[in-house]
Amino acid sequence: MNYYFLLLLAIAFEVCGTTCMKLSDGFSKLAPSVLIFVFYAISFFFFTLALKGIDVSIAYAIWAGLGIALITSVGIFWFKEPATALKIISLVVVITGVIGLHLSNRAT
């Protein structure tokens, strides 16, 4: 089984859930409010399966880092949030940290 594919599915559903948080307008819109919980449940399902083959420290770092990068992109391109230099630099730092954690796991 490809555990990294399962992790990517978990990340995709987490990003969908987070996007629905914004779309729910503080739980005032029913469909996106319900979808938050559906997408997060699916995300945790796939994340749990991915943990069968990936160390939790690495899986969580990838999940969080890639999730941050993707939801930042959604914010910039879909919700028209500003793409400031500090935001982009910070995103690069997060991604660099995730890559460093992944490489450190291979070095042991």
Rank of each mutant, 00 (worst) to 15 (best):
N105W: 00
L7K: 07
T48I: 10
T18L: 09
E81C: 02
E14T: 07
A10W: 06
I62H: 03
L7D: 07
V15F: 08
L66W: 00
I89C: 01
V92G: 09
A61G: 13
A69E: 08
K22R: 15
K87N: 04
A50N: 06
G53L: 05
L91A: 03
G26D: 09
A85K: 01
S24C: 07
I95T: 11
A69G: 14
T96Q: 05
L51R: 11
L6C: 09
F44P: 07
I58Q: 04
N2F: 10
S90C: 12
T48D: 14
I54P: 10
F45G: 07
L35D: 04
N2V: 11
Y40F: 15
L6A: 06
A61H: 00
K29H: 11
E81D: 10
Y60R: 06
F39M: 13
F27K: 03
L103V: 12
T72V: 06
S104C: 08
G65I: 06
K29D: 13
V38Q: 04
T84D: 00
A31H: 07
S33H: 04
S24D: 06
Y3N: 15
N2E: 13
D55S: 11
Y4V: 05
I76T: 02
V98D: 09
I68V: 11
L35P: 02
V98E: 07
I54K: 07
R106C: 02
L30S: 13
L49G: 10
A85Y: 01
I58D: 04
F13Y: 12
V94Q: 07
A61E: 04
S73E: 11
N105G: 13
A10Y: 06
V34P: 10
S43I: 05
Y60N: 05
G75M: 01
L70D: 05
A10S: 14
G67D: 08
T96E: 06
A59D: 07
S104F: 11
T19D: 13
F79L: 02
F27E: 13
I71K: 05
S73I: 09
G100Y: 15
V15T: 03
I62Y: 03
T72K: 01
M1S: 15
I76V: 12
T96F: 08
G26P: 09
F46Y: 12
H102P: 00
L7P: 08
A83L: 04
L8I: 13
I95R: 05
K52L: 12
V15P: 12
R106G: 10
G53Q: 09
D25W: 00
A107R: 12
I71S: 14
I62A: 10
A85C: 01
G26T: 10
T96W: 02
H102K: 15
L103D: 13
Y40C: 11
G75F: 01
L9N: 12
E14I: 00
A31I: 14
T19K: 04
G17R: 03
L23Y: 01
E14H: 06
L86W: 04
R106S: 14
D25Q: 14
T84W: 00
A50H: 08
L66D: 05
V15N: 11
V34K: 08
A31L: 15
T108W: 00
G65E: 04
M1R: 14
V56L: 14
I58V: 15
